[in-house]
Amino acid sequence: MTVTAFALVRLRNLFAVVMLSGIFSLLAAVLYVVLDAVDVAFTEAAVGAGIATVLMLGTLALTTSVVKEAPQKPIAPLLIVSLTGALLIFGTLDMPPYGDPSAPIHHHVAPRYIEKSGSEVGPPNIVTSVLASYRGYDTLGEVTVIFTAAVGVLILLGGGRRSRKKRRTAGKTGG
């Protein structure tokens, strides 16, 4: 997965970049299955490898598919990146080790969800009951974000098309 990411940095052909990012998503989905997050893996495989790739390809068809040579020297960004990375790795030293059941994240609300959701909400899939019932507000917000993003794309891309269509066939509504 990391190798794919590094290949993404080097490649100049955007078509290959998009394909590799699809592979990257699939690998991420496999990783999620290994980490027990089956719902998340499902979503990532459908979204990241499917829809996102199609959208990127659509953009490439509309624009160009070859990256021009970057004129600037990549030393300054590389410095910033390695500095930030070093700081973050220093920060991880205080994190609980992987798979540790005594990590603080597992002690706040999660035990309640696991114990009670079967009798309070019903569905055996805890992810579904947390998503739809305990955190209904969150999910409502997320759906609103998706709605807003779609409306934004409509405004950005749909508006131009409509005015153009109006110019060609006057009076016919575009939407």
Binding site: E44, A52, L55, M56, Y113, V127, L131, L156
Partner: peptide, 26 residues
């Protein structure tokens, strides 16, 4: 059981992520 709460957060975040990606591409 593995902690379900992060799964919920990330599940929605992925779909929101692709929607915002679409906005960026637009």
């Amino acid at each position: 059981y593995t902690n379900p709460l992060p799964h919920v957060l990330i599940l929605t975040a992925i779909v929101v992520g692709v929607a915002t990606t679409a906005l960026a591409l637009a």
